[in-house]
Design a binder for these strands. Structure first.
Lengths: 215, 215
DNA sequence: TGCGAACCGTACCGTACGGTACTGAATGGG
DNA sequence: CCCATTCAGTACCGTACGGTACGGTTCGCA
């Protein structure tokens, strides 16, 4: 996963030492492997070969570490909204399918699932600070990419909708359905992934039936 | 919430004393109010005026208590699949809208959210036993109701689909989209609920566009 | 009345965690 | 060469939890 390059990228303008990035990487690994219960300060310190005192100096307290982990991971995910090449019906469909597949694969990723589980577990108390962070820095990114795609489709006369949010909601729902929740609840994601391609195409077909200008 | 009647109902054939039902009710209240962190054995014992020793005698250990809570709550939710009156296009639409609204309101319920958060939090370790339980005893119920409704629609010539699961997945996705996740992450459900009616109708409209036999 | 079962309340134990304090080894700059 | 900074490693403290054990009380029953 070329963690070094990714880490350096993530640190750009985040006030994070490279060492701290490595520590956060190790913390994420612990979280993915063992869930929140396994994410103890002593455990992180041991896994990252640093002292607990350093952890507290860098991140304040445990919650600060959790926030830093979310921000760190979010800063690593760069959603490229490329293209904007002249859209026709077929290229729009292709872009939508790629988007749908990317969405499913992001949601099914180890780290994404672990962080979502973490934020959901903390949602009851503490005003769901982590939840908002995850929502803002994770979802918003991919939402923007979708919004740009939909808007381009509309500008090209290939899509017709009044409310962009509503259209995006339909696309998201058709693509994801209840798979995300099932994975969050522990359903093995392994066998699911092979069906992502077919599922993405079906969802895009349905979406184009609803919002496409030509059947 | 007529908890007494509901409790008595839930105990039918579950090997649960009425006292134990009251204890589970109190445990659910603690979980809803304070999340998993607030659900300690001592806390439950104090809130329910029973001894920790009794808790361990009745439920084995903490995980047994959690399982019992899920089973208890699931047994309280009775999904009536009524109707089966002669379907026409309008009554099918009405039934679908009612189903969609019910689904949204169930998912937005305090106890449902708390139990889903609990199961998701435990999904990393322990083979996600609670997750499977929640999936089986909660989702399966409402899924059956939807399947019956869809099948009736097809039998009446009002719906056309090959794969019932695929159709149900589309309906679920159109109705729920990412609202469930947002609520699980802590988004205030209060202001959302007022939009459920409109959202349900929009989703059903879209679903009928996709799977209805007459536009 | 005597007996046993169920059970509440509480005290108790071992453990594990979050957070703090201390020591000693590097490192680097004057 | 000396001093300041940083940090790893460890020991430590208070707390809180899961789980167990025990005394006292109520209740049903013979």
């Amino acid at each position: 996963m070329q963690s070094v390059a990714a880490t350096r990228e993530a640190n750009a303008g985040s006030g994070l030492t490279e060492r701290q990035g490595v520590v956060l990487e190790e913390a994420l690994r612990l979280l993915v492997d063992g869930g929140e219960k396994a994410l103890t300060t002593a455990g992180v310190a041991r896994a990252a070969n640093c002292s607990k005192e350093s952890l507290y100096k860098w991140f304040g307290d445990r919650d600060g570490l959790l926030s830093a982990m979310i921000g760190f991971q979010a800063s690593k995910v760069r959603t490229q909204d490329p293209a904007a090449d002249a859209l026709n019906a077929e290229s729009l469909r292709r872009h939508l399918v790629v988007f749908a597949k990317d969405l499913l694969e992001v949601l099914a990723g180890d780290v994404s699932l672990a962080l979502n589980r973490l934020a959901i577990g903390q949602a009851s108390r503490e005003g769901s600070k982590l939840g908002h962070m995850l929502q803002e820095r994770g979802r918003r990114q991919i939402g923007r990419r979708a919004a740009a795609l939909l808007e381009a489709g509309r500008k090209a006369g290939l899509l017709a909708f009044d409310d962009a949010d509503e259209a995006y909601g339909a696309l998201y729902g058709l693509v994801v359905s209840d798979w995300h929740l099932k994975m969050l609840l522990g359903e093995e994601a392994g066998e699911m992934k092979k069906g992502f391609g077919r599922k993405a195409e079906q969802a895009v077909n349905a979406f184009l039936t609803l919002y496409g200008t030509k059947g």
